[in-house]
Structure formats: structure tokens, C-alpha cells
């Protein structure tokens, strides 16, 4: 799980072009949206693509994303439980 979390942080930084944020800056429980990393609605859509592309998980209802993308913790447990690749 730790490896997955590390990998997720690296991917999020790369995919969302978070230029001035390092892996060490993101805590597992930090809010990804709102006050935390400050991600927005396009980032959320991009995370849905990331789940599909890298883990073979298709989210059809964007509302589901709200719970899954709360933090690195919630995202990694969802991926671990549902990944197909």
C-alpha cells in the first residue's frame, strides 16, 4: 500500500502539472480538493482518466469521484480494492 501511495503522488504531480509540489509535500490524509492541494473540476476529470488508464477502473458517475478523491488514503484504498491492471 505504501508503494501505491508513493506511486499515486508521483502520478498526480505529473498528470496534473503540479509544478511546485513535491511528493513529500503531500500527506496521505491531506484534502486533494478545496483547501488542500487546491485541485479543481478539470483535475477531477483528469483523475478519472488516470484511474481508467493506469488501473483499469471506469468511473461512470462523476459523483462517485467525490468520495474516492478525498485524499491519497481514500484513493489508494479504492484502487487497491478495484484495480483490474
Amino acid at each position: 500500500m505504501e508503494a501505491l501511495k508513493q506511486e499515486l503522488k508521483e502520478k498526480i504531480i505529473a498528470v496534473l502539472n503540479l509544478e511546485d509540489i513535491a511528493v513529500a509535500d503531500i500527506n496521505d490524509t491531506d484534502a486533494l480538493f478545496g483547501d488542500g492541494l487546491g485541485l479543481d473540476s478539470i483535475d477531477a476529470l483528469e483523475l478519472i482518466v488516470l484511474l481508467d488508464k493506469d488501473y483499469g477502473i471506469k468511473l461512470t458517475d462523476p459523483k462517485e469521484g467525490k468520495h474516492i478523491f478525498q485524499s491519497i488514503d481514500t484513493m489508494s484504498s479504492y484502487i487497491a480494492a478495484n484495480r483490474t491492471k
Binding site: I42, D43, L45, E46, V49, D52
Partner: peptide
């Protein structure tokens, strides 16, 4: 085939 919303916009 992974169209990117962040590119499309």
C-alpha cells in the same frame, strides 16, 4: 484511447 479533459479544454 484516453482523451484528456485537461488537454481538450
Amino acid at each position: 484511447y484516453f482523451p484528456s479533459p485537461a488537454v481538450f479544454v
